[in-house]
Structure formats: C-alpha cells, structure tokens
C-alpha cells in the first residue's frame, strides 16, 4: 500500500483546471519531491490530498484511506504531519500554547527533540514571530506526534541557510528510520539533495515522475573545456553535444574555450579531444535548473513528453547538435 495514491485527480475551478488527471503514487519510506513553478498546481494537489478541497474527479488515497470519506480521512490524519506553504497560528497565543493545543489533539511523542533543532521562542506571542520562527514552530507541530507520513509545502521557505541545512539533515535521518516524505518545492537544489523520486507538474498536469538520478542523467553533464590552442569546431561534433558555445564571438566557431551540455558517451567525447592540449576541463552534473528548463523552458512548452524528448535529444543550441 502506497502512502499517497492519486488516480486521475482533477480539480476544476471553472476558469482554471488546477489539477488535470494527475496520477502518481508516493511509496512508503521514500522522499518524494513535487516540483513545479509557482501556480503549477502543487498546492492544489496537496490540499486535495488533505481533504481541504474535494476533487472534481479522480480518487485520492492517503495511507490507504479514501480522503473523501471523513471517518477514513481522520484515521489517516492521526499518522500524518502537515506543514502548509505559509503556516499560520493564532496570533495572540504563545508558541507554547500552540504546542499544548496540538499535543492535546494529536499527542506529543517528540516535541522536545524537534525543539532542539528548531527552536522558536515559545514564550512569545506568535504575532511577534518572524517568518522563520513561524516556520520553525510549524516544523515542530508537523513532527511532534511522530507521524508516518509528512506532507510539506515549500518547507524551507523562510528558513535561513543554516536551518535549511539542518532541515535537510533531519529529513534524511528521518527517512533512514522509515518516514515517508512528500514535499513540494520550486527550489531545485533542495529537491536534488533530499528526494528519491521527483514528480514534475506544469499547468496542472503531471509531466513526469522519475528517480532524481535519471532526471540528472537525462539532463546530462555540463562540460567546460579550455584548450591551449583553438580546437576546430568540427572536432566537437560528437553525438550528445548540445548548446555548444565558445569564447570566440557570440556563436560557435573555432575557439579555445567551449562550454556545452553533454548527454552522450563520455569516452567518445574524450577520444575526440585527446589530440588537443588542454589547460582545463571540467565535467559536472548539469544543474537541475537545466532539467527544469527541459520541462518549462519556452522551447520545451510544446515539446513531446519528456521521455521522448530525451530520446530524441534536445536542440537548444542550434548548430552544436550533430
């Protein structure tokens, strides 16, 4: 039984179809990233999974329970932690009063432990809290009852880099002990650091669900090379070179410095440049922004689905493609 199962989830607001036939499953024990730009429909999916919105069509099962049946939904919620994208608490209450209320309603197994990592000023009223402190309190209320599944909507917004780092370590450690995490983000590096699998949504439609490595593989390597003397451009006409740029003028031409994305066999590339003396060569994983561009970039907007697109190779640089 999957932790979250969506089958043809559709949410129609009349003018906008916020979710359109979204189908995927979050398996138990995995960290699943739900990625998309603002307004893509991430929050709509999450709010439907939580039963805050009712689906126009399709089914949603949360920890095996049908979310449109309130009794079943309540069963699931006992084992669920949720952090909304902009958590809000009673402004006139202190953090401690909020935690007491949450403890009375859902239990408190480990707030003390979570508070050591995320420590909002509990004796102050929420109205005096900074955005970061509200987020910290939200994290404590999300994890305090030791849930099996947590759903986090843009969890690190409002956290400073140090706390983001702490949050990442915390989520990884929790995953080791069997926690299932479903979180949405538009920050790619965050997804890459944490997720096992990633679902990408655009304009309410699920574009792809893939292991995070395969997304990285598909996006290829980012290669920069700097040669002692100009390398003829045709030497670099190797299968899998995209978006070739050189330092010599705007377009690609014979130059000494080249940068391109590479999705082919790395040995073929090395063989092609073996005869040239290099000053420097770097081969890095393409930034996930590159992956993202494949799904959201203007040229990708009308492109075929991601898998076909990757198989066909993308043509973003023009003449660099072989």
């Amino acid at each position: 039984m999957a932790a979250i199962e969506l089958e043809g989830l559709t949410k129609d607001y009349g003018e906008v179809r916020a979710n359109d036939g979204v189908t995927f499953a979050v398996e138990r024990g995995e960290v699943f990233g739900y990625l998309g730009p603002n307004g893509a429909g991430k929050t709509t999916t999450i709010r439907t999974v939580l039963g805050l919105l009712s689906p126009t069509a399709g089914t949603v099962r949360l920890l095996g329970r049908d979310v449109t049946d309130e009794a079943q939904l309540l069963e699931a919620k006992r084992r669920l932690g949720y952090l909304p994208d902009d958590p809000a608490f009673d402004e006139t209450a202190t953090g401690r009063e909020i935690l007491d209320l949450h403890a009375s309603l859902k239990g408190d197994e480990r707030s003390a432990e979570v508070l050591e990592l995320f420590d909002p000023p509990l004796d102050r009223e929420i109205r005096e809290y900074s955005r970061g402190n509200v987020q910290k309190l939200g994290l404590v209320t999300t994890f305090m009852h030791d849930p099996e599944l947590v759903i986090l909507d843009e969890p690190t917004s409002g956290l400073d880099p140090l706390l983001q780092q702490r949050f990442n370590e915390f989520v990884r450690a929790e995953r080791e002990v069997g926690l299932t995490v479903f979180f949405s983000s538009h920050i790619l590096s965050e997804v890459r650091k944490l997720c096992d699998r990633v679902g990408i949504i655009r304009d309410g439609r699920l574009v792809t669900v893939d292991p995070v490595e395969s997304l990285l593989d598909r996006s290829g390597k980012f290669v920069r090379l700097h040669a002692d003397e100009p390398i003829p451009i045709r030497s670099l006409e190797v299968d899998g070179v995209h978006g070739l740029e050189s330092n010599d003028g705007a377009g690609p031409s014979d130059g000494t410095e080249y940068a391109f994305t590479f999705t082919g066999d790395i040995n073929a590339l090395l063989a092609a440049i073996r005869e040239y003396r290099l000053v420097d060569l770097s081969i890095e994983e393409a930034p996930l922004e590159e992956v993202f561009m494949r799904f959201y970039g203007s040229d990708a907007a009308d492109a075929p689905p991601a898998t076909e697109q990757a198989a066909a190779g993308t043509d973003r640089g023009g003449s660099g493609d072989v």
Partner: peptide, 15 residues
C-alpha cells in the same frame, strides 16, 4: 481567512 484552518484541519479533528 488567515490560513490557520489548514493547520487545524491537518489534525485528527473532524470539521
């Protein structure tokens, strides 16, 4: 209005 309902209803508490 102020977005507190999300947090409240994420708890095992029927509407």
């Amino acid at each position: 209005d102020r977005g507190r309902m999300d947090v409240l209803l994420s708890m095992p508490l029927s509407r």
